[in-house]
Every structure is written in structure tokens, then in C-alpha cells.
Design a protein around this nucleic acid. Structure first.
Lengths: 218, 218
DNA sequence: AAACTACTGTAATTCTTGTTACGTTTGGGT
DNA sequence: ACCCAAACGTAACAAGAATTACAGTAGTTT
């Protein structure tokens, strides 16, 4: 393609003072991420990873031990990145409807980005083969977002805008409302990418139902 | 192994008057379903399918053409079964809270059965390679359940128990509330199987939020 | 500059697995 | 009982891919 120069694609997050080994490692990880996300675990090809990363097969094996090791290293790094990425920009003291809308859109837009969908697909399909991986992700990520929203809700309760008995439960419910339909459609129909308008409309509905229904939880 | 008698595992849904070919075909399909659901598409092994089904590799290839053909045939059949299975037992004229609870529990219990989770996992992981398959499923199944619930909701509106402007939207929202958290946990943690109590409690919350919040949708 | 280490490139190895070939057996219709 | 198509069993075939071996090269350290 336009990438006709065969220069290796170094990751952007590498410290400048990193040694040769670190540079190779980072390039391998980036290429591995691309290839694994694109083709899945079984169909991913070690030779292709090397082709994209530059460097040599031997070095890859020396550094990661094998396909499994490379995969796990890549996932570990990715889980870390995504978890921090999930720290939702807090809505501070915005009024309830506005704050929920902002948090909801932020979350849902991220959720439907192709890269995140591919990551999710990979997780689901490999959950049996790499249980620790999937479990780590399924605990850290939701916890991060739930905590962020819980904090905001608590603020709103103190402001007297709403009554909530269980913050974590309320937060989880809000994310349930947000994600389900769109995420499932996107997972099953890779060609389908929701438009901005769809996402915003969906968030609007979720916010309405949430505000109306949440107080019903004793 | 312990399966020392080499008897083929015939499917239970075959008409008694079926010819030899149909019997073989049904046995292959059942074994294929088991193996594909268990290992995923790439890791599934044709020889193992034959081992489980009884019969011979040659016949399998004669009937289905190859791995891809077998997979598609199996999925087609399965989509048909599941779609009809999703015809929720209508709650007839039960009062709103009771009817929703019944429908919700029925749906969610089915949704978290290991076989259905494996099927979903397979769909998600192969959505790119077999787009028609995933799309067919992602359209037929939700439509079936939504229609069933819509009918019930309409009945309740006529009975004056609630006000709803858009039945399909309302139904979709209810299923969003039901499925999200538990389904995602189950997908990512194959070892985790929610208890009956968890499921029922979750449904209770969903019903409460739904009833409280749904009228907020203009 | 020498020595040592790490990286590179390529080819060989080995294993797995989908697929095909072919000679034999079997069941059902006449 | 006879025939023929379908099913069987087994082995061969081919392709792909993970992994390893090895000889040459480049960087780093002292």
C-alpha cells in the first residue's frame, strides 16, 4: 500500500532512551496487536508479524518464547492501556442529565471503535484458552468505569438531584442500558458502524430511562 | 476411551423414516455442532467430528463438500432451532410485573446456558469470516424476542397498566437491561455460571427499572 | 580495536490437518 | 439373489505454520 518503505513500525509509546532490545520488543508488540486483532489468535501468522514489525523471527522467539508468549504479552499491555483509557473524563458537577449524557457518549463512542470491538472479539473467542486474560479484563475494565460513574452519581445525590441506594448497582445498570444493543450488533456485524447520530440518540434514551427508573430500586 | 462401543451418536430430531443418507447427515451435524461449539472453527478437527459421529471421512466430504460447508450447514440448522426456541412463552394477560418477570427469567436462563454461550462465542469470533451467518442470526433472533415482548406490552397498555409510545423500542430496552452484565461476564469467564438466585435477582432489578423508566420515553 | 553479545536472514525441520484417492463392503430395490 | 449406488476405511497427499539451527553481521563495552 502507501506504506511502501519497509521501515519497521515502532510503537509510539517507547521511551527515547530505550535500548535496542526495547525497540524491537515494542515493534513486535505493535505488529502483534495489529495481526492478532485482525485475524484472531489461531489464524494469526508469526511470519507476518515479523514482516510488519521488521526485525527477525529469531529475535522474536528469543524475546517472547513463542506465539503464546507473544500473545499474552500483547494482551497484558493492552489491558493496561485500555483500563486507563476507561477512566472516564469525570463530568464534575454538571447537572444530572447533562453529566450522564456526556459520560454515556464518551463511553459508547469508545466502545464502538473498531479497534475496541476487535479486541473484545478476540477476548471472547479466546476466553477458554486464556482464562486468566479474559478474567483480568472482565474485572478491571468494568470496575474502572463503574467507579468513575459511581463518583459522579454520589455527587449528584449530595446535590439533591436524585436518590440512589446502591451506587455500584446503579452505575452498572446505566452501562447495561448503554451498551447492549449497539455493542452486540457491532460485534456480530463487523461492517456495521453506528453513526454519531445513532450513538447520541441511543444515549439519550438510556439517560431518560435511567433517570426515570433508577429510583425504583429500593 | 470409555466410548469403546463405536456406536454413532444419532441426532434425536431425525424422522424415523429417514434414509441412510439422512441418518448420516444428522449424525455429522450433531457431532459438528459439539466440536465446533467446543473448540471454535479453526481449532475444530474434521477427523474428530467423524470419530464422534461414526461413519467415514469420505462420506462427510461427499455430503458437505468440506469444513466450510459443514460449518455453514450446522449453523443454518442451529439458527433455525434457536430462533424458534426464542419464541418466548407468552405471558398472556398476566399483570405487568409478573409477566415481565416471567418473560425475563425465561429469556435470561436460556441466554446463560453453556450451549448458547458457546454458540454466541462462535458467532462473534467468526463474524468476519462468515458475515452472512452472523448477520442472519443477529437479525432473526432479536426480532423474534422483541416481537414476542411487544405483543405482551401492547396487551398491558390496552389493559391500562402502563403507557408506551414505541413498543419495539421499549422491548429492546427491556432486553438490554436483562442481558448485558450477566451475558458479558459469562462470555468472558467460561467457568462462571450464574446461579438461579443471581438470575432471578437480576431480573427483578431489570423489571423495576423498566417499569419505572419506560414511561419517560416520549 | 578486540571481544562479546544481540540481532538478522534464510533454510531446514516437524507437526498438524484439510482434502483426495481407491479398493472394499453393504443395504435396498427389482 | 442380483446390482448399483452409497458408505466405509485407510492411507497418501499437499499446504501451511510454528519452531529451531546456523552462519553472518552490527553494536556495545572495555
Amino acid at each position: 500500500m502507501s506504506q511502501s518503505d519497509s521501515g519497521p513500525a515502532e510503537a509510539q509509546t517507547v521511551e527515547p532512551e530505550a535500548g535496542r532490545a526495547e525497540l524491537r520488543r515494542a515493534a513486535f508488540m505493535k505488529a502483534a496487536k495489529d495481526v492478532f486483532l485482525e485475524h484472531g489468535y489461531e489464524a494469526a501468522n508469526m511470519a507476518e508479524i515479523v514482516r510488519r514489525a521488521g526485525g527477525s523471527l529469531s529475535t522474536l522467539y528469543a524475546q517472547f518464547g513463542g506465539k503464546k508468549g507473544l500473545f499474552e504479552a500483547m494482551i497484558d499491555a493492552r489491558v493496561g492501556e485500555l483500563t486507563t483509557q476507561m477512566q472516564l473524563e469525570l463530568a464534575a458537577h454538571a447537572p444530572l442529565r447533562e453529566g450522564l449524557t456526556r459520560i454515556g457518549e464518551d463511553f459508547l463512542f469508545r466502545q464502538v471503535q473498531p479497534e475496541n470491538l476487535n479486541f473484545f472479539r478476540l477476548m471472547v473467542s479466546q476466553a477458554k484458552k486464556f482464562p486468566e486474560m479474559a478474567e483480568a479484563w472482565s474485572k478491571r475494565a468494568p470496575e474502572a468505569v463503574r467507579k468513575a460513574l459511581s463518583g459522579y452519581l454520589e455527587d449528584r445525590v449530595k446535590a439533591g438531584e436524585i436518590t440512589i441506594s446502591n451506587y455500584d448497582q446503579a452505575a452498572a445498570t446505566f452501562f447495561d442500558l448503554l451498551r447492549a444493543r449497539i455493542q452486540i450488533r457491532a460485534l456480530l456485524m463487523p461492517a456495521y458502524v453506528p453513526t454519531d447520530a445513532e450513538v447520541r440518540e441511543h444515549v439519550q434514551r438510556a439517560v431518560k430511562v435511567f433517570i426515570g427508573g433508577i429510583e425504583a430500586l429500593t
